[in-house]
């Protein structure tokens, strides 16, 4: 049964709403200001689009995100499936290893990478993907592990094998479709990280969309704010649509037993 909100609840929610929404509105207002701060318009957004590197860097970040997601799936799905089958005795230790990036601050990791492999990281920006796989590993491991725990994996694999499928066919045709939502979750996590990651990119001297925003800000704060608003509000709207979506049949029902 849905309880009614008290005055205190409303006060808290109102304050929270103000704290989170007022800066957003103020930033939107700021991003719409004209040259002298007297007029409003889309001039800053037009300015962004005209900037050299906008499309290129956005494209770079998108490619990075895609490569990261593919690497995550290639590396993590077979590994975790194996941990749920024949390799169960290694599950605890692998689980622990996957949590290590959570306790290593990205800044320390950046330091380590910069000193340990200076040559490797100088050929192409897409090598950042390998590092992003490490940084997202605690989250992607968890998403996939929960997904695999919720299906009768051994039975499915045995059924597929007895029907004559190879292990690779089993993975692609049986296992992956049955944990689709977990895989979507892992992809979503790695894409979100790769699109927004700043620390590793800037410290290893690569240009991605987030570092480009930072560079743009040096010459035009208005432009940087517009870009920030654009990316924050954009990400928020996408997630909101995905999460809330159309009104589902089962939502908002009061049940009485």
């Amino acid at each position: 049964m849905k309880r009614r909100l008290s005055a205190g609840n409303y006060l808290v929610l109102l304050c929270a709403f103000a704290f989170f929404v007022v800066p957003m509105i103020a930033a939107i207002e700021f991003s719409l200001r004209g040259d002298q701060g007297t007029t409003h318009g889309l001039s800053n957004y037009r300015w962004i689009l005209a900037q050299e590197g906008f499309g290129a860097n956005l494209f770079t970040s998108a490619r990075l995100a895609a490569i990261t997601a593919i690497l995550v799936l290639l590396l993590m799905v077979p590994t975790i499936v194996y941990l749920h089958l024949g390799g169960a005795r290694w599950k605890r230790i692998i689980e622990f290893i996957c949590l290590v990036p959570l306790v290593v601050p990205v800044i320390s990791y950046a330091m380590g990478v910069a000193t340990a492999m200076p040559i490797f990281l100088q050929s192409t920006v897409y090598e950042l993907s390998f590092l992003y796989v490490i940084v997202t590993m605690p989250y992607t491991y968890r998403a996939l592990d929960v997904g695999l725990s919720s299906i009768p994996l051994l039975t499915l694999v045995e059924a597929s094998k007895s029907a004559g499928a190879t292990m690779r066919q089993t993975l692609v045709l049986v296992v992956m479709p049955s944990i689709r939502s977990a895989i979507n979750g892992a992809i979503f996590l790695s894409v979100a990280l790769a699109l927004g990651e700043f620390t590793l990119a800037v410290l290893l001297h690569w240009d991605t969309f987030p570092t480009w925003i930072n560079n743009v800000a040096q010459s035009n704060v208005l432009g940087a704010v517009s870009l920030s608003v654009f990316s924050l509000v954009g990400a928020w709207l996408v997630v909101l649509v995905v999460a809330v979506g159309p009104k589902s049949k089962h939502s908002d029902q009061n049940q009485e037993a």
């Binding site: 800066p23 800000a217 920030s228 608003v229």
Partner: peptide
């Protein structure tokens, strides 16, 4: 990250 910083610069 970065967008958050600029959002606050813009409003505060």
């Amino acid at each position: 990250g970065v967008p958050l910083a600029f959002m606050f610069i813009a409003s505060f």
